Amino acid sequence: MNIMCLNGWGGKLHTSLLPYLQSTAPDILCLQEVVHSPASDKDWLTYRDGDHILPQRANFFRDVSRALPEHTAIFCPAAQGVLWDRDRAVPSQWGLASFVHKSLPIIGQIQGFVHKSYSPDGYGDHPRSRCAHGIRVYDNALNRTISVTHMHGLRDLRGKLDTPERATQASRLLDLSRQVSEAADIAVICGDFNVEPDSETLTLLTDAGFVELVTTRGFTSTRNSQYSKPGRFADYMLINDTKAVQRFDVIYDPEVSDHCPLRLTL
């Protein structure tokens, strides 16, 4: 089984990302920073937050769903705000998505918030609402059940420092993973956590019996040349049973986002 985790950067590099997903076709794809604008048929809209202006792939969830037609696609919104078509405001949902190959029966599922709650009337002030999604599948090849839970950790304008909000977020993420898992499962927790390797978030998860794969396997960054700011870590993948790991990679080439895909083979 192949599990991939990626912050999709709102689909900014979709011309590279979609062929990459089609060629790799992970059995489970955990995708963060997903845009879903069902009221618009536009390919591109603009996100505006003060001086922070970004192009957004208006129907990124639809794009990835079409690229992976053999997968069950699940969108989990954190908030609904507006994107802009020039001077016209377009309602648009923002959140994360999970894609599970249809050969894998989904036998458990959980969706919840790790910070704040659903915001229907705008994206809100930072730190904004954040959700998480967990699925439990049965893998006939491994003859085992596997749970995979992911989140997009909150962004704090002060940086990636430890905060009470991030500690609460980590506890809620762990709780969601435990709710969707059973004792004998291979359990995976992943996502763009927006924290440093020595964070309270990772300490809490490792104290709970998970092993973090990015730093323990010698990778020195989960960012690529698309990202020019300081700080080379954001994304992590943890597992409760390292004996099940056949291979783990941080993918630097091709560049399909300003984050690197994390790819785990069980």
Rank of each mutant, 00 (worst) to 15 (best):
S221V: 02
K229P: 00
C131N: 15
A39N: 10
G50Y: 04
D185Y: 01
P197M: 05
E182R: 09
D235W: 13
R88E: 14
T24G: 03
T163G: 06
F233C: 08
P164W: 01
G124H: 11
H101K: 15
A208G: 09
A244Q: 12
S37V: 02
F99S: 06
N2I: 07
D121A: 12
I3S: 07
A73L: 05
L104Y: 14
S225H: 10
S177R: 04
P164T: 08
Q80F: 03
L202V: 09
L204F: 11
L161H: 12
D235Y: 13
T46P: 00
L21Y: 13
K160L: 06
Y123E: 03
S171R: 15
Q80V: 12
L6H: 05
S199W: 01
L18T: 03
L176F: 05
G124R: 08
G95M: 10
L104G: 08
D253E: 15
H152M: 10
Y138D: 07
R57T: 02
D253P: 02
K243P: 02
E165M: 11
G231S: 10
K116L: 13
K102H: 11
L17Y: 08
R86D: 07
W84D: 02
S257G: 04
R166T: 04
C190E: 13
K160H: 11
G218L: 14
K229G: 04
T222Q: 08
Y118L: 00
S16H: 14
L205P: 01
D43S: 07
F210I: 04
V90R: 08
